[in-house]
């Protein structure tokens, strides 16, 4: 556990000096603050921009950052050196995962505050977002594990991220896309957030899709880890 904390601290410092990664954690929360305050359109669903950017946030930041960090460490052999320092794979993944999750949750708190959620709703908002972030993190880790360089990781992570981050937005404009998007965890997160904002009940289907997505992501992660390991 101590090694995970050391890795966590290392990642905090490293990301602090890496603008390309750091910006991913703040971009969408910042957009939500600006848009929620700048644009007020009649008949717009409550906290429309919070829901939209929150889903983009969970689709992009955890997936991209996990893939980028793991693939960079593999490419530059820093991961190998960590293992020489007696860091176990699980400790490494917990350290990096812990950092990405925490950083994403900081953004999530910003969304919740901008959305004006309080009390139980605040906690529900965090829980819904946490579920989406975990699935995205697992997908990012799979990409990081299966690729050998940052460039190849980005090549796969970018389109994957775009599908999950932007599918809910595109679904608003096209029924066919909406039908397909129904099977994406990010779309169900969007629907749950919309429900939370409008005070409607969460559909069991949403929970089911997110749960199945999580199981698939865990399965993919186990497969990737067994196939390639971290090195």
């Amino acid at each position: 556990m101590k090694n995970s904390i050391i890795i966590f601290r290392k990642q905090v410092k490293d990301t602090g000096r890496n603008l390309a990664l750091g910006i991913q954690f703040i971009m969408f929360p910042l957009m939500a603050i600006i848009m929620e305050n700048a644009i007020q359109v009649k008949d717009m669903p409550p906290h429309f921009f919070v829901g939209m950017f929150a889903v983009m946030h969970i689709g992009m930041a955890p997936l991209n950052v996990m893939a980028a960090v793991i693939s960079e460490e593999k490419e530059k052999n820093t991961l190998r050196m960590l293992f020489f320092g007696s860091v176990k794979s699980v400790e490494y993944l917990l350290g990096i995962g812990g950092f990405v999750f925490s950083a994403c949750m900081v953004g999530t708190v910003v969304f919740a505050v901008v959305g004006g959620y309080g009390g139980v709703e605040f906690l529900r908002f965090l829980l819904i977002m946490a579920a989406g972030i975990c699935v995205s993190m697992l997908l990012g880790a799979v990409i990081g594990i299966l690729t050998k360089s940052q460039i190849s990781a980005t090549t796969i992570a970018t389109p994957t991220m775009m599908v999950f981050a932007f599918l809910p937005m595109l679904a608003m404009f096209n029924e066919t896309i909406a039908k397909v998007a129904d099977y994406a965890y990010s779309q169900q997160v969007q629907l749950m957030l919309n429900g939370l904002a409008s005070g409607t009940r969460t559909e069991p289907k949403s929970l089911l899709v997110i749960a199945v997505s999580a199981v698939i992501a865990v399965g993919m992660f186990i497969y990737a880890y067994r196939r390639s390991g971290l090195l």
């Binding site: 090694n3 050391i6 601290r9 290392k10 410092k13 490293d14 000096r17 890496n18 530059k76 052999n77 820093t78 190998r80 050196m81 960590l82 320092g85 007696s86 860091v87």
Partner: peptide
């Protein structure tokens, strides 16, 4: 055997000092 390029010399070594 890569170094953490964005970290300082001190931080690169401190990481391993913590691990050891």
């Amino acid at each position: 055997c890569g170094l953490y390029e964005r970290l300082s010399c001190y931080d690169n070594l401190r990481l391993y000092a913590d691990l050891y």
